[in-house]
Design a protein around this nucleic acid. Structure first.
Lengths: 206, 206
DNA sequence: AACAGCCATGAACACTGTTCAGTATACGAA
DNA sequence: TTCGTATACTGAACAGTGTTCATGGCTGTT
């Protein structure tokens, strides 16, 4: 009886070992440059073993992404639940979003940037899509609060939320992928984008 | 004498054949899912031949990207050279940018989205970086015109240009990569983002 | 006709993700 | 203790990738 429990525990341990090794390698080298064999080497198992714990390589990454994105969702939720001025919340959420993206660039890249058709990450893996939508919904919530405080120009919450998302997503991806470009100082650019976005949807006569 | 000219012409022809085949295949299947062998099959040559005309697979794509991006630069330049209201130009440039991205999603994706560390596209290939910067500079020019017409809030042209770029880039990449997400109607979202961005940098008391 | 140089070949290398027959080990029952 | 079974793991194998290079055949010049 207890044997099965121990077995399950050991299974879970090895699963976590794989995830830990993969996380480290992915962060250091990116999804493309990490082979299943390298992950297997790291944990000192044979390549085949990986497939006893994960459906395929993408499955490993998806699991890691899910993990990471629930962190972002929690962070945004904390802001949404705060009781300060909703417009201020919007700014804070924007900054938090970009900070997060720059803090986990590889995770962000795969989840929100890379076309999921390529590299075998299929839409069937709705888990990640769900995790992403979850994050978006936290932002949407804050927008709703601004709307309720009559601070916004326009009625459509989705339209405004998606436009704001585009702005923060845009600056995130530019900073992640266009490392060669001569950007102005990072925090100043981020602040400007957040400001531009918020001012761009706010009611004119403040 | 004429022989060398003919040789050079034939060389150029085959080079173009490779580019044409690659363009079609890349557009249909994306960079990842097109192998050098498939390109070679298409033009009915052996894989090795490709390497007599291009350094590597990335070199082929880079050439195609450069081509495509000079198109965008021209389109933006045409808008910059127009003589209408500079703020109106800014809106038109924003729309043109997104339209372009959605029209050439694969090219846009590789050039502006994919991390260039991965998939062997190294920063050494400054050609594309240059082509991208060129496009940006056209937008920057229009921003400058707005500044000169005293239509903008803030002094720093680069700061404003980069923030605007983030917005249009953001909506472009979201629409390209997040095909699963329940976006509002495309043209409405694009219009809202452009509007948000422009209003977000414009002088308040119009 | 013989030599030169260009050009295309396709086999080969080292890698990739993934599968699967085989093996060893640990367990529960006799 | 011994046997049989279930489970975990292996590592060779497959089909694919990007890339290289010795080989061989044409072509134009001498």
């Amino acid at each position: 009886m207890a044997v099965q429990q121990r077995r399950a525990r050991e299974r879970e341990n090895l699963r976590q070992e794989i995830l830990d090794a993969a996380r480290t390698l992915f962060l250091k080298n990116g999804f493309e440059n990490v082979s299943v064999r390298k992950i297997a080497d790291q944990i000192e198992y044979s390549p085949g073993t990986i497939y006893l714990y994960f459906r395929d390589k993408a499955d490993i990454f998806n699991t890691l992404c899910e993990e990471t994105f629930s962190k972002l969702a929690r962070r945004l939720k904390a802001i949404a639940d705060d009781s300060c001025d909703p417009i201020e919340k919007l700014r804070r959420a924007g900054r938090a979003y970009v900070d997060f993206a720059l803090h986990y660039p590889h995770h962000y890249q795969i989840t929100f940037i890379a076309g999921h058709k390529e590299k075998g990450i299929k839409p069937e893996d709705a888990r990640i899509q769900t995790a992403g939508v979850n994050c978006f919904n936290q932002m949407r919530l804050i927008v709703q609060q601004c709307r309720e405080a009559d601070q916004l120009q326009g009625e459509d919450i989705d339209e405004i939320s998606q436009a704001l998302w585009a702005a923060v997503h845009g600056v995130s991806t530019l900073l992640i992928t266009q490392c060669g470009f001569p950007f102005i100082e990072r925090s100043r650019l981020i602040e400007r984008v957040v400001d531009m976005a918020v001012e761009g949807v706010r009611k004119k006569s403040g």
